[in-house]
Amino acid sequence: MTGAQAFLWVLALVAMGLCARRGAIPARKAVAETGQSLAKILPLFAVALPMAAFLAELVPADAASAWIGPESGLSGIAVGAVAGGFMPGGPFVTFPLVIAFAKAGAGVPQMTALVTGWAIYGIHRIITWEYPVLGWRFVALRMLAGLPLPILAGVLAELIDVVVPITLGRP
């Protein structure tokens, strides 16, 4: 278990303790909700992790470096930001794909733009949740307000990466 995982367990147990102090009903509800979330997420994992693993094997080792490599600069950042918007699902899909791209030679600023683009432009989430729940006007408002941010994030990451080289991947 890594440090971050241990930290997460401490937080979870403290929060569960606080729930239990409020009474048996909130505690039971919290555990029941955890079970429900798990039942929702496990099928997604069962298809998303193999998908990312297959794609990682298929993508040649330096395929990504021309488009989104560390030397690709601003155009690579823009490609990353737009590609992020087209990621086909939640973090269980996007992050394994980022690992696959990094293995194929993608740069850290470009991947920062991709993760930020996924968070802000993510089309799958707009179609499945934001539009049905909040409507087009809200989508338009949020997209306009957030439009330059993924590019900006990539540029800032590039500035940081020059001063302090950042590694991407498991500790």
């Binding site: 937080l11 979870a12 929060a15 919290a30 955890t34």
Partner: peptide, 12 residues
């Protein structure tokens, strides 16, 4: 752990 934390926070 994350799901447990989320479930507990939603009650709190």
């Amino acid at each position: 752990a994350g799901l447990l934390l989320a479930g507990a926070l939603r009650q709190l």
